[in-house]
Write a protein that binds this DNA or RNA. Structure first.
Length: 500
RNA sequence: GCUCCCGUAGUGUAGUCCGGCCAAUCAUUCGGGCCUUUCGAGUCCGACACCCGGGUUCAAAUCCCGGCGGGAGCACCA
């Protein structure tokens, strides 16, 4: 029987059967495997090379969400084991960013406090015969690995390895002269998993926190494995880019017989049109191109905050995206949609006239405007204006052009006008004219405040706005027919940052 | 080259493990109606997708095989 016939037959029985029923999207993350309430320990492990950017917020918030669900513990672990890529300010900025995001951190761990721990792990690996000190130059060593061959040092005894490691620690080797290598399997089909460097020498750059006290630095795979175990991590959620690192770290877990955390790798995120690279930003700030880490052109968390993007919107966005391991394209559009849900009900409305042009109003002595701060919430009050002759208001160039062409306009909350001899002639205050097709425009009083709205592309929209009360500072307002913006200062000039 | 991960609308996502109620979810976006003194919100209608080809089966988005496509790693960065 064709589908249409079935449809007709069913409709004949009861038309309600074919009604669409809406199903609620639950928008929740799946449960974590083997998670016990109160026992979950998770972490965020940023390198302190700068403040957090939008890309970091996924791992920060996903972990936070689960820690809260299972009433667990959240560790912020600063991975500062590469002294060449550290911005000392980041030790302060990262916790600030996490706090702004609403991430509850129970414990902060700084890896540069833990050199002795990594050295101890290294010793134990050596004693187990699972690590050796290699003094091959980097390139031939890599080449041998590629071919699945052992370098001459791989067969050294634990005693030899310990001696050589002592020499590393006592500055007996310079950079690239010796490394401690963790053995895995040289014949592993995946070349990315074969023997990897566990510790290396860096003595050309002092560490911002430990100076030149330590020159043997752990590589991430060693320090991460050690800390994930020692800090009692039960679940690790991170990006797919760490898939091969997990494989390497699991060797260390297996050598020690440690219980592995449950790993989950989500897909990579491509963030279009965002400036995220800390080195680029750093250079830009030093060169004066960017005003700072919170320059609104940047994709940093503090730049988003400055623009009026709310942390809850970022959280909702990542919750919606979820945990899938497909690679995705970040959608500013969707983030803005979540943000609008939050700011629209709370943002007070004001008039901001860009490209302002004056218009003289005649035919009336006094005009009074009482505009609601928010159309859906009259109880919040009104912005009031009283205009007396001679009356001049400001309109956007485009709106004034429209008045000239059409001959009529309604100024919102104020009055209706007819165009005559370059002036606006008062024609009443009945907003019923809108039903007749009269267009509506916003306006600003002649004694309004000079306003500048900084756009995310770095441009500035200048104009005249209503005067905002000082309480609007730091809040997101809506400039009608323009968009949302976060108010930075209300006087002597109005300065705001465009949200969306 | 080798290894791993992944392919559902413009974007994100549900469904895939355990085949049928999927003639495919929800959100966003876009188009339109209603409502509305901005924009939005709300509400209603509409548009757009199972990477391709085989196979198994009464039945495939779902299972199998083979392609193709995308991404990541093969660092003395994290």
């Amino acid at each position: 029987m064709p589908f249409e016939d079935i449809q007709r037959a069913v409709e004949a029985i009861d038309p309600n059967l074919l009604k669409r029923t809406k199903t609620e999207r639950r928008n929740v993350l799946p449960d974590l495997p083997v998670a016990v309430e109160g026992k979950v320990v998770m972490r965020m492990a940023p390198g302190p090379s700068g403040p957090l950017h939008i890309g970091h917020t996924r791992v920060a918030l996903l972990n936070d969400e689960y820690v809260k669900r299972y009433k667990g513990k959240y560790i912020d672990r600063l991975e500062d084991t590469n002294p060449e890529k550290i911005d000392p300010e980041a030790y302060r900025m990262i916790p600030e960013d996490l706090a702004w995001l609403g991430v509850h951190v129970d414990e902060t761990v700084v890896q540069s406090d833990r050199f002795e721990i990594y050295y101890d792990i290294a010793r134990q690996l050596i004693d187990m015969g699972k690590a050796y000190v290699c003094t091959c130059p980097p390139e031939p060593w890599r080449q041998m690995k590629e071919e699945g061959k052992a370098c001459p040092h791989r067969s050294q005894s634990s005693e030899e390895a310990n001696e050589q490691f002592d020499r590393m620690l006592s500055h007996g080797f310079g950079e690239e002269e010796a490394v401690l290598v963790v053995k895995t399997d040289l014949k592993h089909p995946n070349p990315a998993v074969r023997d990897f460097v566990g510790l290396r020498v860096v003595d050309s750059v002092p560490h911002p926190r430990t100076g030149d006290r330590y020159t043997v630095y752990p590589m991430m795979n060693l320090s991460v494995a050690a800390d994930d175990h020692l800090l009692g991590l039960t679940h690790v959620i991170r990006g797919k880019d760490h898939l091969n690192n997990t494989l390497r770290q699991e060797y260390i877990f297996n050598y020690f017989g440690w219980r592995k955390p449950s790993y989950h790798h989500y897909g990579l995120v491509h963030i279009p049109e965002a400036i995220l690279k800390t080195s680029t930003i750093h250079k830009g700030i030093l060169g004066g191109e960017y005003s700072g880490w919170d320059d609104v052109r940047l994709g940093t968390v503090r730049a988003l905050a400055k623009r009026g993007i709310r942390a809850e919107a970022i959280r909702s966005y990542w919750l919606d995206v979820g945990m899938k391991d497909v690679d995705i394209e970040f959608s500013w559009e969707n983030l803005y949609a979540f943000n609008k849900q939050i700011i629209d009900p709370v943002a007070d409305r004001y008039f901001f006239v860009w490209d302002p042009e004056p218009l003289e109003i005649v035919g009336v002595d006094v005009l009074e405007a009482r505009s609601p701060l928010h159309p859906d919430h009259p109880e919040r009050g009104t912005r009031d204006h009283v205009l007396r002759q001679p009356i001049t208001v400001l309109m956007t160039r485009e709106d004034l052009e429209g008045l000239r062409e059409r001959g009529t306009v309604r100024l919102k909350d104020l009055c209706n006008l007819r165009w005559e001899n370059g002036k606006g002639v008062y024609t009443g205050n009945d907003h019923g004219v809108l039903k007749e097709g009269v267009k509506i425009s916003h306006w600003a009083p002649a004694d309004g405040v000079e306003a500048e709205v900084h756009m995310p592309d770095g441009s500035v929209r200048k104009g005249i706005a209503e005067r905002l009360p000082v309480q609007e500072k730091d809040k997101v307002v809506q400039f009608e027919r323009f968009g949302f913006a976060r108010v930075e200062t209300t006087s002597p000039r109005l300065e705001a940052y465009f949200t969306q």
